[in-house]
Write a protein that binds this DNA or RNA. Sequence first.
DNA 1: CGTGTTTGACCGGCGC
DNA 2: GCGCCGGTCAAACACG
Length: 322
Amino acid sequence: MTEKPEEEMEASSTVAASSIQPPFSSQTSSVFPFVGDLFDADGGDTDSLGFLELLGLRDLHHTPPPLLFDHLPPAAGRGAEPPDGGNIPATPSSISTSSSTEAATAIRALTASPAAAVAGDEGSEQQQKTSKAEEEGGKKKGQKRQKGPRFAFKTRSEVDHLEDGYRWRKYGQKAVKNSPYPRSYYRCTSATCGVKKRVERSSEDPAVVVTTYEGQHTHPSPILPRGHAHQPLLIPPPPPPPIGLSVLPSMGLSLPILGSYLHPSPATLPDFRPAAAVPPPLPPLTHNAFSNRTAAEAEASSRDHGLLQDLIPSEIRKSDEL
DNA sequence: CGTGTTTGACCGGCGC
DNA sequence: GCGCCGGTCAAACACG
């Protein structure tokens, strides 16, 4: 409720996220659809490409892919309203185990308003504390404390907290009004990273987890979860995501990647555009996607494509290369 | 012992 | 000004 204004703002600026059907089979439905409109703001040529285009999957987009969102109940997460929580479903293991079939994830990328984007910085860590200073220093009371870029997306998963390659520390949990499910607050464990994320289940559809990322990772390499160290998560050095540009990995990226996007170095955010600037979180990769390739293989490819290969099936990659 | 989770309290923003 | 609510802190606890 109180967040409505904020969210509405985001919603208006971000528009509904269009989901793209993953090139992968339904199994890898964990791919996320990115918000086309959102990124559309960036360039006019992005017809229905949106995020994917940014990711460089233009070829894939040439065919308007069905929106995953369509699968989600309109009301899920308050429907049009951007749910506050959005997390990146990045837990390959979780996804693969829990929702290989219902891994369908819809992403809703939300970005803070331009002002927010500008104001938002990695300092989100102490947003609360700093927010005060900010408000006093420059912001007005009427303005809600704006944080760094935010994007939220929905994921169908049994697990609330999806692994995205980064390590998160839970620092709070609160019951949310109008929702039987509590909202969990996570913060990147990296001392220098102030990225936060909120995770909550949709009251409309318990199967849907809404994850909201806030801020950008300042560290290039995501940390693999302890228990998942053996997982073939490829985390190539974060390709400096040209914000507001066009090269964002689209689907297929593992959460780790997502993290990278979240972490475009502050230096690259000079003129950060709210919607187009922030790449939406990547969809939780399905382990399946990885399983198809060997780590070595992926690694090799990662050199060329960075993270995309992880997500994109070789077939698709081929087309991409072509 | 280090790391992460749980949980109640506290703080601040916002609407009435 | 008051109350509600979201968000965060921090101590206690659990686990490997």
